[in-house]
Design a protein around this nucleic acid. Sequence first.
DNA 1: GATGAATGAGACTTCATTCAT
DNA 2: CATGAATGAAGTCTCATTCAT
Lengths: 198, 198, 198, 198
Amino acid sequence: MAKTKEERRKEIIETAGKLFEEKGYEQTQVQDIVNEIGVAKGLFYYYFKSKDEVMEELADRYADAIIDAVNELIDKDISTFDKINRIFQIFIDSAEKKSGIFMGILNVKNGITHERIFFNVGEKMVPLVTELILSGNDNGECNCSDPKFITEFLVSGLFNIMNQISPDEKIDYLKEKLPTIKTMILKLYNFAEQKESK
Amino acid sequence: MAKTKEERRKEIIETAGKLFEEKGYEQTQVQDIVNEIGVAKGLFYYYFKSKDEVMEELADRYADAIIDAVNELIDKDISTFDKINRIFQIFIDSAEKKSGIFMGILNVKNGITHERIFFNVGEKMVPLVTELILSGNDNGECNCSDPKFITEFLVSGLFNIMNQISPDEKIDYLKEKLPTIKTMILKLYNFAEQKESK
Amino acid sequence: MAKTKEERRKEIIETAGKLFEEKGYEQTQVQDIVNEIGVAKGLFYYYFKSKDEVMEELADRYADAIIDAVNELIDKDISTFDKINRIFQIFIDSAEKKSGIFMGILNVKNGITHERIFFNVGEKMVPLVTELILSGNDNGECNCSDPKFITEFLVSGLFNIMNQISPDEKIDYLKEKLPTIKTMILKLYNFAEQKESK
Amino acid sequence: MAKTKEERRKEIIETAGKLFEEKGYEQTQVQDIVNEIGVAKGLFYYYFKSKDEVMEELADRYADAIIDAVNELIDKDISTFDKINRIFQIFIDSAEKKSGIFMGILNVKNGITHERIFFNVGEKMVPLVTELILSGNDNGECNCSDPKFITEFLVSGLFNIMNQISPDEKIDYLKEKLPTIKTMILKLYNFAEQKESK
DNA sequence: GATGAATGAGACTTCATTCAT
DNA sequence: CATGAATGAAGTCTCATTCAT
């Protein structure tokens, strides 16, 4: 047995994430997590100081994955409108990934997981998008008087939609809604009417 | 002392609501609630079967208060745009009331309370607004191809905004954002450009 | 309303007895008893010092009813065998009465009720029957070397049988078994082979 | 410390059994059990899901021990009368074992323990003995028209006797009564008059 | 790296009993 | 006689965390 340290850490985080989504944070016991993996409880505490620390890292990892992708995009030489669209696309795509998180059925009991992840993602994503819109305002691509508020709105709206549909329908549902979302972006940030480049 | 049954019920619900907001559902013990009121723990269970039942009733009461106000509005002889605006106004106003609920600082620990209330409110409010827009579509006041999705977006967006600011700033913040919200409504439901009647 | 003191006492005792049988002593709350009657909980404590006191009185009443009937019989001018038979007949008959007690389905949870009543009845009945057999030994009607042990055996055996069949079948079952019981009495106390006088 | 799982389980079951007998099931708290052993309360729930589960296992173990011994006996090549005698002997012997169960003073409060154990034992023992008598009827060793009823009678009678005497006197008392019990068996099942082989 | 028995504080809940009206 | 809101001690059960092996 004896996996490498990093493998085990990842295994624990991902298993925890899966269970938090399925049953909620409070309803998932450390025992459930180690049972799922097939190791002893003590091992959990060899890798993490507490159950809470796993949650924290979980939310961070998820947020970081999104932010990394967004950062990579931001310096590209494409229109602001395209950037914004792609950012939300990345956000949505993350729901398709096998990350374990985001894959849970809406469960009123797992509120804490959702809020925590949302908080982490939102906190990092909103400033990036806001900055982007502000520069778009400057060069005339768009005209939005309160980009921070609008962005918070869009992010939280999307997030909640994603948490209210079952994982099976999620991908198809979001694909179906994509044009509507693009129209919303167009209107709310006041982009000049335009065609999206591939 | 022996208050009437209805007074005590209300007192317990409101005290519970206040504490749930302040500390979160899981972190609020039944003992905290009865301490705050100054009665014995048994009394709590004389009125409610469980801690969960209080939460349920709390969420229902809050949702019902909003829905009642919305229903009253819906038959009035004013434009659809005005109705929609006022509905969101009611939604926002409810956050100002001293109801005890909704008054909490954003606390990542009280996710369950927020999700539960949001779920109850959203579930009832979205269909009402959707219906309104559909009839607005029919008589040419607006032109929205997916009113249900847009409404879910607006409701969840607003809800999250309200949960992310401290109660002290909340009222002023929302008042400040009101024009922006109205503009969003105007654009997202595609209302014909118009003046709102006072 | 306002029944007489004695009526209310009886009502409470009988209702309690019924519920103890149905659900067991520990599982029956004072609240259940007063709910069934339709009065307030305080009234229960106006008539009885405690829940235990009701149980005590219940067991006593039941035992006394049997003992009274047995005592009446004991001085009659009939054979000892007939007396013994009739005593067990009385014991069995009491199970048919609408007394509320003894009418419960076997419920592993109501052990306390059964044991308590059995204890009270047995304690009073065994010495009477034992005495009877001893005098029967003296005048040659029977010949039993350990009447106390045999009687305890018969009483506890009957009692358990009665607690193991459902109330609906009870009467018919016991009627069916009556000849077997008589044969047991005949053999165990070593009565001279004889015909029972009607 | 850290005993093996099976040792601890057994320790808990036996300690619980001892206390149930001494004070009754309802009157024995989980706290009492763990105090007696000198461990933390959580450990109890590490091994058992509930207090009730211990009781269930207790009754099962006791019943199984008897049934195992009886089964071993049943195929031996001895007379039916001897088998029946030895079965009741096993039943009685089990009361002498230091198993912890069955060793309690008669306590009207421990009715549930007694009823439960009796129920489990009786349920398994009665059919075995009944079958034995039926085959004894076939080969002419005995002649009993209702072996099931008689057996229920004997088992419940013995059981009650055992619960009504203090543990100190129990062994001597039962030894003293053994001839009487054998005579009862002889008569009730209508065995042909005979000598028991040693 | 890994185990899992053991801990123990503290949560929720129950209910017999009281007492002011 | 009757009410029923209020009490509070006591019980069962949970679970994150520790630590000796």
